[in-house]
Amino acid sequence: MSGAALLDAREVAAQVTDPEMPMLTLADLGVLREVDRDGDRVTVTITPTYSGCPAMATMRDDLERALLRAGYAEVTVRVSLSPAWSSDWITEAGREALRAHGLSAPGPVDAPGDGPVALTLLRTRRALTCPRCGSDATALVSEFGATACKAMYRCTDCAEPFEHVKEI
């Protein structure tokens, strides 16, 4: 297959979805860091959201499969640790997709100060709206949820639970 006939490697990689939040592409999630093409060989660099993110192996496999199917002969997936992923890297399209699927998108991350990280003894205050009914009356259930990146909330108006992607 000639190089010109191959689909753009970045476009192919960018359309691969997150295995745990499949409404998001890896590009929307902000974990796709680099796509380098050299003829029919592609090197993709991704970054983990959390250190223990169990989805990394699946992301790698999905990227490999998508690019091989698009006609590339050799796909290498590399890891980048620095800079560390931030929820600020979720794109506006990604935030829309989260809301459309009943998840609450993260707010902006506070810039780290110079000194020690401050302790937060009171529950983290977030101004959230229920992705189901739009009410502002929400209550934190737990800062930890079904995946590393989510907190659990409930709406005190419609009484439905919902997940919030955490600021990190």
Binding site: P48, S51, L81, A84, V117, L119, L121, E143, F144, I168
Partner: peptide, 14 residues
Amino acid sequence: IAAKGVKEVTYHRD
């Protein structure tokens, strides 16, 4: 590794 861990352990400590 540490820069990533700082963000995670902040939640653990809280």
